[in-house]
Design a protein around this nucleic acid. Structure first.
Lengths: 171, 171
DNA sequence: ATTCATTTTGTTATGTTATATCATTTTGTG
DNA sequence: CACAAAATGATATAACATAACAAAATGAAT
C-alpha cells in the first residue's frame, strides 16, 4: 500500500508555496487577513512535516526580528488554527501545517475541519489522514450514545513504514 | 440507544470501591505495589467521572497532608497510567480513572490499553468507550499505511445527550 | 484627506503544567 | 541485620500558555 510518510519525489519548496497560496486564497474568500506576521508563522510551521512547538516558532521569530513575546506567536497560531490552516497536536503540544487547507471539504462555517493524524515517534513526521471508514465509525459511535461531537482529537502514534524498515535493515 | 453518560442508578461510592478493588487485584497479579499514596491518588481521581488536573490533585493532597510537591503527584499518576488504572486526556491535560481496569481485555504486557473517550464540554463528564467498528477502522487505516501503532489518542468532545436535552427543556 | 472604530501587534507580567536532580525513607531479600 | 532496590521528599527550574493594557496599523465613511 502507499506510504503517506514517503511520497515519492516530494518537492518541499513547492509544497510550502502551495500551502501559502492555498492560505491566501482561503483567507481572501472568507474576508480574513493573512498578515505578514501570520503568513510568516505559517511558513515557519511548514518548515517540514514535523510538528513544531510554539516556543520553537518563538525562537525562530526572535532570531529574525529581535524581541518577540509569546503572545505574538500564540495569537498567530490561534488565527491559523481557526482558519484550519494549522492544527494543534494535543498529544505533542505542538503545531503542524494542514495538508488539506485548499480542499476544505468538510469545512464548517469557519475553516476548521476533522483532522486525524499518524505520528511517527522515530522520525517525528506527522501525516494528516482522511478515512471514510474511520469517520463512519466515529459518527456511528457518537450517534448511538446520542452524543453531538464538536471536536475530534485523533492522533495515532507509532512507527511509520520507513522507520520500521530502517531497523530491519540495520540502518 | 443507551446513554453512557447517565447510567441509571449509578452508585458512585461502590463504583469507586470496585475501581480500587480492581486496582489492588491488577497490581497484585503483576507484582506491582499499590502503595498508600498511589491508592489515595487513584481514589481522588475517582472522585467523579470528570477529568481532574494534576494540580487539583496536588491541592487535595496538600489539604490532607500539608506540604506536597508536584513530583509526588506526577509520579503517582505516572504509575497509575502505566498500569492502565488512569488515563491522561491530552485534549484537557487532565486525568481520569479507567473504567475497564478490571477487564484488561486488550491488555499489553504492561497494563496499558486502547482508550477512547467521549467528553461532554457542558457537564464535564468523560466516558471511556469501546467500539469494535472504530478499532477495526483504526487498524485498517494503519495497516494500509504500513504504520505500527503504539499509542492512540482518541478524544471526542461535544455535548452528551442529557446536556442537549437540558437546553431543549430550558432547564 | 481626516476622523473614527476596529483589528492587529507590542509589551509586561503571570498562570498553568510538568520534569530534573539529589536527599531521605521505606521495602523486600539474603 | 545488612544490603540493594524502590518509593517518596524536597528544591529548583523548565516548558507551555494566557491576561491585561498600550500602541500602531487598517478600513470605512465622510
Amino acid at each position: 500500500m502507499d506510504n503517506p510518510f514517503a511520497p515519492p519525489g516530494h518537492d518541499h519548496a513547492s509544497c510550502v508555496l502551495s500551502a501559502l497560496d492555498a492560505a491566501e486564497a482561503v483567507c481572501a474568500r472568507r474576508g480574513e487577513r493573512l498578515t505578514p506576521l501570520r503568513r510568516r508563522v505559517l511558513e515557519l510551521v511548514w518548515r517540514g512535516h514535523r510538528p513544531v512547538g510554539a516556543y520553537d516558532l518563538l525562537a525562530m521569530l526572535q532570531h529574525e526580528r529581535g524581541r518577540v513575546a509569546p503572545p505574538t506567536v500564540y495569537r498567530a497560531l490561534d488565527f491559523l488554527c481557526e482558519q484550519g490552516l494549522v492544527h494543534r497536536l494535543d498529544s505533542l503540544q505542538a503545531f503542524i501545517g494542514c495538508g488539506q487547507a485548499a480542499d476544505h471539504q468538510d469545512g464548517r462555517e469557519d475553516g476548521r475541519h476533522r483532522a486525524h493524524f499518524l505520528i511517527c515517534r522515530d522520525c517525528g513526521i506527522a501525516v494528516e489522514v482522511r478515512d471514510g471508514q474511520l469517520d463512519g465509525a466515529i459518527s456511528h459511535l457518537a450517534g448511538r450514545a446520542g452524543f453531538a461531537i464538536s471536536d475530534e482529537t485523533i492522533e495515532l502514534s507509532g512507527r511509520c513504514a520507513d522507520c520500521q524498515n530502517e531497523w530491519i535493515m540495520g540502518a
